[in-house]
Amino acid sequence: MNFIDRFMASWRKYRKPGYYEEFDYAWTMTVDLDRCTGCGACVTACQAENNIPIVGEKELGRGREMQWIRIERYWEGEYPNAKLSFIPMLCQQCDAAPCETVCPVSATYHNQDGLNAQIYNRCIGTRSCAVYCPYEVRYFNYYDHHWDAPLEQQLNPDVTVREKGVMEKCTFCVQRIRQAKDHAKDDGRRRVKDGEVQPACVQTCPSEALTFGDRKDANSVVAKKMNDPRAYHVLEETNTLPSVVYLKKVRANAD
């Protein structure tokens, strides 16, 4: 194999669709838009679980919200036929993530769980990943955020508190995934069982619109949901191969 072939081979290792097939897990979230009511429980659950700072009115006014999962809302039609749809938008944990190629220091990369990892202490804050992300789910720490005492006591000790100048985003609650793996190891199991781990948003969703699991396991709930004819990816045309699968909203034929 000559140099060019070797080079191309290693390049393809990253670029070929399906390189992640060899990974241990392929964590996937499904979002049933027909069930989502837009209530925002997931947003607060995520804030609570992941030490997401309270940024304050002024900073929010400047467009610096820090919610790893947000509810986007889209109106259609005009009064009296106006309709509103909600869509929870979070890091799609793309298998071909644009953010991963651009980070100059590899602070974001694809890990063995098929997740798009974000390593805060490696990040130098070029923010290029946020530019490259078509879903705009990467949030930047414009300041060192603080919690008015004693609110800091609610901080989750399993999650790093990010400092200024660092990018952050949804991790699919990696601390929970790792804990589940830890428990699996304790039980002498090689793999985590379906349903054993749920990110905070999935756990709390009152209408059970969100489900989470490993799509490599054909019997998992998410694998079944992915076979639903309603399943689709948001911005499929960007070919980012997301791990978040949305199920289409059903529009009843009212007349």
Binding site: V131, Y142, Y143
Partner: peptide
């Protein structure tokens, strides 16, 4: 204080 001193915001991070 952090990059917050500049006017950049969530989608327009540059």
């Amino acid at each position: 204080y952090g990059i917050g001193a500049a006017g950049m915001n969530s989608p327009t991070v540059w």
